[in-house]
C-alpha cells in the first residue's frame, strides 16, 4: 500500500490553457460592418447634401419624367425585414443544434435576398431613370448599386456559412460564423432602411 495521497498527483502550478481565441471572426465582421456602413453613409451624405443644394436653388431634384414609385421600395423593405427574422432564425436553430431548421432558415434568407435583388432590378425598369441623363441619376444608381453589391456580399457570406454548417463546422458549441453572417446581414438591412428613407421616401 502506498502512502501517496491522490492529492499529490495534482501539480501545484497548473499551466494555463492556450488563450481562447473566440470572437476573432465576430470582431472582424463588426469592424468590416462598420467600415461598410461608413462608406455607405458617406454616399448617402453626398446625396443628401447635393439634393439640399439643388432644392435650395429652387430646382426639382429628380429629372423630369422620372417617378420613383413607393410600392416597390416598400415591398423590398418588407422582404428584407422578413429576411432579418429568418437569418436570426438560423442562429437560434444552430444554437439548439437544430440543423434542419438552420438550413431552412438559410435557404429562405437567400431566397429573400434574391427576391430583393430582383425587385430592385424591376424598380430600375419602371423608374425610367437614365444614368447618362444627369449627374443626379448617376448618383442614385451609384448608391442603389452599392447597396446591391453589399447585399450580394451578405448573401455570399450567408451561403458560405450555410455550407460550413452543412459540413459540420458549426453547432451549439461554436456558431460564431453563423452569428457573424446574421450580423452583417442585419447591417445590410439597416443600410437599406437609411436608403429607403433618403432616396425612395424623400426622393
Amino acid at each position: 500500500m502506498t502512502d501517496v495521497t491522490p492529492y499529490e498527483y495534482i501539480p501545484a502550478v497548473v499551466p494555463p490553457p492556450e488563450p481562447a481565441r473566440p470572437r476573432l471572426l465576430l470582431l472582424a465582421t463588426s469592424l468590416v460592418s462598420v467600415a461598410v456602413g461608413m462608406g455607405f453613409m458617406g454616399l448617402i451624405g453626398h446625396y443628401v447634401s447635393e439634393r439640399a443644394v439643388v432644392i435650395a436653388a429652387g430646382e426639382r431634384w429628380l429629372p423630369d419624367g422620372v417617378v420613383i414609385p413607393l410600392t416597390q421600395p416598400n415591398f423590398m423593405g418588407l422582404t428584407l425585414a422578413f429576411s432579418v427574422i429568418t437569418i436570426w432564425w438560423s442562429v437560434a436553430a444552430i444554437k439548439n443544434d437544430d440543423r434542419p431548421n438552420a438550413f431552412i432558415a438559410f435557404a429562405v434568407t437567400l431566397v429573400f435576398g434574391f427576391a430583393f435583388l430582383a425587385q430592385t432590378a424591376y424598380l430600375f425598369t419602371i423608374m425610367q431613370l437614365e444614368i447618362l441623363t444627369s449627374e443626379r441619376s448617376a448618383l442614385i444608381y451609384a448608391i442603389i448599386g452599392a447597396h446591391m453589391v453589399i447585399t450580394a456580399i451578405a448573401m455570399g457570406f450567408a451561403a458560405v456559412m450555410a455550407l460550413r454548417t452543412l459540413g459540420g463546422d458549426y453547432s451549439s458549441r461554436d456558431y460564431e460564423g453563423v452569428l457573424c453572417s446574421a450580423l452583417f446581414w442585419t447591417m445590410m438591412v439597416a443600410l437599406y432602411g437609411v436608403m429607403w428613407y433618403a432616396i425612395y421616401i424623400t426622393k
Partner: peptide, 12 residues
Amino acid sequence: VLSLPIMMAELL
C-alpha cells in the same frame, strides 16, 4: 476603418 471608407465612397 472609420474614415477611409468615406474616401472610397468619394472615389465611387
